[in-house]
Design a protein around this nucleic acid. Structure first.
Lengths: 194, 194
DNA sequence: CGGCGTACATAACAAGTGTTAGGTATCTAC
DNA sequence: GTAGATACCTAACACTTGTTATGTACGCCG
């Protein structure tokens, strides 16, 4: 069983190329050739690591989720509203990588809405995100920093606010500077305080 | 100068076909052939009314905006918070047509992020939407139904909340029933009341 | 009725698509 | 050193893509 190259590492190289293509061209521009030339190789290499384009897309989406998770700064040491604010701010396009990730994310919604399998994946991803936010919301409610009521509703509303802000910021980064995004988030959370 | 067919009417037929394709396949599936077969014609007809695919895309986006505007129910007789709630609720995917429009809308963000010209159009569209909401927000502030402060910030936040809700509802219509969407909107506005 | 310009079908085009099949080099294991 | 498996390139495949040119039918104006 030969192992002249590190299979996993090489696969990550392909991943990186996929990512770069997505960040610049969006899902509409994701082709095997684009990925191949991006890493100075041929389609043969790409298909060697990913059996089909569908597999490549799925992988790209997993990648986006993973990157999102590691982008969001640690909320260790924080709890309640402060942790929540940190968690939400971490999703915003406040730096080049955050912008990149969100571009990929938003751009994926086209394929995700058209393809049932991807649709299901995206739906599950949203669910997971809300589940991760929920305990923070509940803490904030206990601290009387957020109004009482169904925490699931609050989580959904906050997720909505955040992603809606992401989209607007992507299309008009000038009007939605980093400072303003954070200000909007902060003000929004304060306005909700009972 | 012959006029055996109503040029404008025929053009609208093409429009309708474009729309049906977008609603089912998204922008990724928008091709001249798809439009042509959708209306039982050939690519020759399509190109006769739209010189290029880019023109077709631009037209499709204008169509989406027009449909959105006529979808939103009249807010005549209403003012302030009530009008605002109505205006925002009108954007939500609460019926088949609303769902269709939003699907097209969200799906367009892929191409819109990748193409500079479309990017500019989308940015302008967002700006127009916020401008239309602004007077309602200001009225609501005067009525003390919304907290004081920069109205532009409030508008952006409400637009964010609404569109973020749209996206979540598109991906999980079961979890975001019509009733719940309206409930979330109502609760959200109430929570903002000073 | 003859000419002209519009409306569209037909069809070809070059380019780009995902997928698949050899082919070759190179390493490991014996 | 030989056998076998992996890594990757080359190249072809069958389509699909947007665009363009050609042909034809047909209503209007003179």
């Amino acid at each position: 069983m030969p192992a002249k190259v590190d299979h996993e590492a090489r696969r990550r190289d392909v991943s990186a190329a996929v990512w770069r293509v997505l960040a610049t061209e969006g899902f509409g521009g994701l082709t095997l050739r684009a990925v191949a030339t991006e890493m100075g190789a041929t389609t043969g290499l790409v298909t060697h690591y990913f059996p089909s384009k569908q597999a490549l897309i799925v992988h790209a989406l997993e990648l986006a989720e993973a990157r999102t998770r590691e982008l969001v700064p640690s909320i260790e040491g924080l709890r309640g509203l402060a942790a929540l604010q940190q968690a939400l701010a971490g999703v915003l396009p406040l730096n080049p990588e955050g912008t990149e990730i969100n571009r990929v994310w938003v751009s994926s919604w086209d394929v995700a809405l058209a393809d049932p399998a991807l649709h299901a994946l995206e739906k599950a991803r949203y669910k997971r995100w809300r589940a991760r936010l929920k305990p923070l919301v509940e803490q904030a409610q206990q601290d009387n920093d957020l109004p009482p009521g169904n925490p699931d509703d609050l989580v959904a509303s906050l997720a909505a606010f955040t992603h809606g802000l992401v989209v607007q910021a992507l299309f008009d980064p000038r009007a939605f500077s980093h400072k303003r995004q954070l200000h909007l988030l902060k003000t929004h959370l304060e306005a909700l305080r009972p």
